[in-house]
Write a protein that binds this DNA or RNA. Structure first.
Lengths: 208, 208
DNA sequence: ACGCACTTTGACCAAATGGTCAAGACTACG
DNA sequence: CGTAGTCTTGACCATTTGGTCAAAGTGCGT
């Protein structure tokens, strides 16, 4: 078996092919619901060939989650203590909304994993993710202590941003069933809505 | 096999036992990830006995979804055109939050189903659910046309309420990983946060 | 053209899965 | 009691699943 990091051109290409196919399958059926045969079919490789590049089914899943976690956290990383508080937070929400539109499979992959108790990434959640969130909630708390944004619980602000944005990817089937659409026009409405929602909440002064 | 509606005392009891066990298993692993053996183990009945009461695995799943859909829609049904608009909407959100706290398994059952494309309840979504949502968005539109709440897109308001409340059940593993808690105290913070979030947005007058 | 490492796969395996069936156990009721 | 209907299950089955392996094919530097 080839080492952790792909060396040859063929290895690079096939690693990529497999992860792409696995993303399709895992994001739609969850870990236990996905099968190696499906991933093999989807990728155009034979099943033993998958297992030549990855030692097991869970290894593929973990590799996917590893690779995606970084991109997933990027929008929050960008939240800048030096910027204008309200713009920073609203921009963060809108960046997350963009990600839900552009990377729905990635969003669903995480959703599946978390709904089922995060058996495969609890370490990353309590590590990387928690660290980042702790840091950014401190920034937001700093802003609200200084009276630059309304006084709200920063953790719940972040949770609500995750919820409202990822919802458009994760619950896509429900949304399309209700508003009966094929395209992505509703993302523009969502943008207007979320912009107002968070701008409104953050700009209002705290009640005594 | 017994008819659709349980007749005898034993049938009633076992139907109940099976659905309770199935809720545990399906909500944790999704449809394809759940197995009859797990449900059998969880319910204390033998596998052939499950299939004496339900004709198949999907029949159990459908029965669960059928039974839960009604309860799931109840909070929205209560939204009353005659009431005070802001109180009605905020109360709706808080009722949904209560449901996420009290019925997390039900929430996750739906989440699993929807994330995976709603293969088993797309009819209910485009039927019952869409009808109800269409009706209530009209009510909200009436309120905003009359200047009684801010002018927002009612569909997205409802989506955001679903997202922010169900998030506390569906993404429980993530939330607990970040705020490091065992209890349910964070639901009280969530209540304060969501109350403010929606009250603020709805009460502000529409910008020109 | 040669040799060697890298890549691919058909055939296979043990375990798990959804589901069946016939026979036995239990219950209600005359 | 007795017996007819209800309930329960051990044994079984075909299929699917994650994974193995030896052998065959391919690419590439010399």
């Amino acid at each position: 078996m080839p080492g952790k990091t792909p060396r040859t051109r063929i290895q690079k290409k096939n690693h990529e092919t497999i992860l792409e196919a696995a993303l399709n399958v895992f994001s739609q059926y969850g870990f236990r619901g996905a099968t190696l045969d499906q991933i093999a079919l989807e990728s155009g490789l034979s099943k033993p060939n998958l297992l030549y590049y990855f030692p097991s089914k869970v290894a593929i899943h973990r590799a996917l989650l590893d690779r995606l976690m970084a991109n997933w956290l990027a929008p929050l990383r960008k939240l800048d203590e030096q910027g204008d508080p309200i713009e920073e937070i609203v921009d963060y929400a809108l960046r997350k909304l963009d990600m839900a539109r552009e990377f729905p499979r990635e969003s669903r992959l995480f959703a599946n994993e978390i709904v089922q108790g995060a058996p495969n990434i609890s370490d990353k959640i309590e590590g990387e993710l928690k660290t980042l969130v702790d840091e950014k909630t401190q920034v937001i708390k700093g802003w609200s202590d200084a009276g630059r944004v309304a006084e709200i619980e920063p953790y719940h602000l972040i949770f609500s941003i995750w919820a409202t944005t990822q919802h458009y990817a994760d619950f896509d089937a429900q949304i399309r069933g209700i508003i009966q659409t094929d395209g992505e026009a509703h993302f523009d409405d969502a943008k207007v809505f979320l912009d107002r929602l968070y701008r409104q909440m953050l700009s209002t002064s705290t009640p005594q």
